[in-house]
Nucleic acid binder design. Structure first.
Lengths: 110, 110
DNA sequence: ATAACACATGAATGTTTGTTCATATGTTCA
DNA sequence: TGAACATATGAACAAACATTCATGTGTTAT
């Protein structure tokens, strides 16, 4: 009966999926990649660590904007800070980031 | 002079980065992964193709909501549709998706 | 101590986005 | 043809988000 097929398919599929909580976390993680300012910040940090003022000039946005976005990146453990005198130097926390970037680029360039 | 260092660093970093347009596209692409409903839809489709009504039951949302989100996924070439009678069967378009998922999961599970 | 600088943060604003309801389109079957 | 079903779509609404301005915090150097 079609009803049973439907119910079975729904149930078995749900059973094979990761925990809902995990998938919500995953969405939150990718959300960070979904903004062009943050993408450009991360991209700039591929080369070397940079202080806030440099990043702001590179992406062409207010220092304040960049600081807010760096906080978002920090909260998701994507960047780390090193304080040196008056300046804060940011760098990438994780080597997954570059791979995720590459895969995204592969997808859009085809 | 510090001013020159700053300017040089900014310029050389900008020069090494991909085109700004590309990075905007990349952000739009990742934006699609940044919603838990869409993440769960894609996750369900890892197993096999599914029609809209099944997907709605699996993720526990309105059919309308799922249709809207499937359109977003279609627009970014992440899923494809196969029409069979009254039903539309959706499946994943791209094998990058699973790898991107895996990397995201690796990041959050540590 | 105080001025100048680098960065962080709170409040306010406008925009984007996800969801729902209602309805339209398209398909099957009697 | 008309009823029932599956899906798509438009309008409306609320919630989330990115940016900016103004200001606070912390550091250096005079």
């Amino acid at each position: 009966m079609a009803h049973d097929d439907h119910k079975t398919l729904v149930e078995t599929t749900k059973a094979k999926m990761p925990e809902t909580d995990t998938l919500f976390e995953l969405a939150d993680f990718f959300k960070v990649f979904g903004d062009s300012t943050r993408i450009r910040i991360m991209c700039a940090l591929f080369e070397q660590e940079l202080n806030v003022c440099c990043i702001a000039d590179i992406v062409g946005m207010e220092q304040s904007t960049v600081s807010h976005q760096l906080r978002v990146l920090r909260q998701e453990n994507l960047v780390k800070v090193r304080r040196d005198g008056k300046q804060s130097y940011y760098s990438l926390e994780d080597e997954h980031i570059q791979k995720i970037f590459e895969m995204g680029l592969e997808h859009i360039l085809e």
